[in-house]
Write a protein that binds this DNA or RNA. Sequence first.
DNA 1: TATTTGTTAATTGTATACGATATTGTATAC
DNA 2: GTATACAATATCGTATACAATTAACAAATA
Lengths: 229, 229
Amino acid sequence: MKTRKASALSTDVFAVIKERIIRWEYSPAHRFTEEELCKEFGVSRSPIREALHMLVDNGLVTKEPYRGYTVRQPNLKEIHDLYDARQALELFIVEWLAIHGMPERDWMELHDTWQHILQNVPGVITDFAEKDEAFHEKLAECTENQALLQYLININDRLHFIRMTDITTAARLRLTCEQHLAILDYVKSGDVQCAREAMRLNIEGGRQNVNQAVKEALARSFQTLHRVV
Amino acid sequence: MKTRKASALSTDVFAVIKERIIRWEYSPAHRFTEEELCKEFGVSRSPIREALHMLVDNGLVTKEPYRGYTVRQPNLKEIHDLYDARQALELFIVEWLAIHGMPERDWMELHDTWQHILQNVPGVITDFAEKDEAFHEKLAECTENQALLQYLININDRLHFIRMTDITTAARLRLTCEQHLAILDYVKSGDVQCAREAMRLNIEGGRQNVNQAVKEALARSFQTLHRVV
DNA sequence: TATTTGTTAATTGTATACGATATTGTATAC
DNA sequence: GTATACAATATCGTATACAATTAACAAATA
């Protein structure tokens, strides 16, 4: 979990490696050494170590003293745990928004975005995970609660790698759009219980989808298996 | 937010400074420089920097590039935000425990502890904050969800400094005991709604108490004022 | 052959030196 | 007297050298 200001070099390295991990660009359990990263990025070990530290904080990499760093292999239990944590936070967030309201401008922006996606199904399937994350993070931002947002971002970072494999069928995409629009409507009308339930359904949908994706990955290849299970 | 394995030196330095901050042993907005900490702890800048990095992650210290590190001055809004985040997590936790149950042994341990404290009011007021934190963290542990526990610990770390000023009157202590025992009872009987409500009351009590403590601090001294407000 | 033990290579942990940058103080011009 | 340019200082940012630790492997031994 990371909010700190850090030097340009370390944040750059962090961002690049994080992006690669998230995009599955490393083989399972890939091992990093500081030295090799120094060579690749052309910087010294200090910023590399900082970047790796941040990756460890984000749960994307594990560190063994005197042994090195390895790309994390999240297991199914951890994925479900993260979805539980997400649920804990997001149910609170929609409840808060239904009670305290959210800025009209933000509401419209989200509404338009997802209405637009809905009307163009199955056109827009690229970057689905990013768009979905942006929706949920925007809601968190509207509570103006930095702690909630920070934890949610951490969860999204740690789940992103697996969400990339989401099954983005037209049906699923349409359902997600409808769920997001429903959440917005209930938030606007101040219906706490319905807002919570709509959010719960949305999150559970995501969880089931990921679950399915993991299982299919298992069926497909042993390589993927020992990464994800 | 910190789970990483780190070297002995940096974790030691981190633990010592964190303890001091939490115990108000630094004057408001105390400024650190890496150099001065090197001298004090007799180690080089590398482990000091790691320790400071961890403190920043824990929200106890802020960093300004080329300027130094300062002990954080959480404001009232942030305190309330953290209480909101706590509520989001803990309502989920008791709900989860009420549904899935918790180990009999852990339940008994918590029950005995708080029954004992209740029977000895107003005897045991020392370390109230620690005991209270232990109760809530134990519940989180019983869900076996590392993410939830990690976030809750982070919240407790960031609130600890202000909770130290909690008004620990006999009445308040008794009320807390009763609330904790009620939470345990509802969890055991699987009554989700009552468990949630009991937890909500417990958290809100803590929030109000802290709120009161901050206001009294304001009334008492300007020094304390510009630390907390 | 199985087991223990010493040696070596790989890697991080720590210390220190050097460079970049922001702030602060000072002199000078107007 | 004020403002501006410039120098000095403090501090972190980065690079690099050395120390400590671990793991792997080979050699010796039962």
